[in-house]
Simulated scan of single mutants.
Amino acid sequence: MKEKDILPHTIEVIRPLDPKVLARAMQKCRRFGPKTSTYWLGYVVSLLLGGMVCAGGIVLAFIVLRLAGASPHQQGVWGPFLGTVLAIAVLYSVRILRRRDMAEQFMSTPILRTLQRFDLSTNGLELASQLGLSRFDWSAVDRVLEDQSYLFCFLGPSVIVIPTGTLSTDQRAMLLKDIALWRKQEGTA
């Protein structure tokens, strides 16, 4: 297929993005490593925090088992197990809630509350609204991922979420094929 045969794709968004979708996109975003010392400090602090939550969960499980009238043997067997499961559930829930909170804070950006237009062509990805215009060459896009009725375009630690729910299956497939071709032409695919 020749480049002149490829038509650009335009997608208009008339309603704000759902923060849950942005949180899902943030979850799939690659993390770029900070300096080694900062990474290890964060790792050690996370381990300490996880250990404290786990210890607290185990103590809570022992208290609940004791109040329920469990024998000392049952407390010794089930206390650590239930406490660890409780701690994992708490840490996982906090992680999800933090990501959703970050997404909701990001959604307060004025540009995301206006009508948006995404133009995808051989020249790159262009985001336009009443408040401004941003354009990215395909070489700036690290990765493109299709997720349900959205297209996630990752630019380093950032993501642009493009709703594709209004497109047919064939149109979505053609869009992905064109993006792969454009990225390949720029040497980024």
Rank of each mutant, 00 (worst) to 15 (best):
Y92E: 10
R143F: 11
S121A: 07
S134M: 11
T166E: 14
A89Y: 03
V141D: 05
Q130E: 09
F152L: 03
I162S: 07
V90G: 03
F81A: 07
L145N: 14
A87Q: 00
I179T: 07
R113P: 05
M107C: 12
G132E: 11
P157V: 11
L151I: 06
V77H: 02
R135Y: 02
S134D: 15
V85S: 04
P157F: 05
I88F: 12
L131E: 04
A173V: 05
A173H: 12
L175T: 06
F106M: 15
L133R: 09
R135P: 02
L131M: 01
R113Y: 06
K177E: 07
T84S: 12
C153R: 00
G76V: 14
E146S: 12
L91I: 14
D101R: 15
V141H: 10
D147K: 08
R98L: 05
Y92L: 05
F136Y: 14
R172G: 00
L115K: 15
V90S: 13
C153P: 01
V161W: 01
L176V: 12
F118T: 04
G132L: 10
V159L: 04
Y150V: 03
I160H: 11
G79H: 11
L176G: 14
V141K: 06
M174A: 10
F136G: 07
V77S: 02
V141P: 08
L115V: 15
L97P: 06
F152Q: 00
M102R: 07
S121Q: 08
V144T: 00
T109F: 13
T169Q: 09
Q130D: 11
Q130L: 11
E126Y: 02
T166P: 01
L112T: 07
I162Y: 10
D137N: 14
T114M: 02
T164N: 10
L181F: 10
L155I: 15
L181K: 01
M107Y: 02
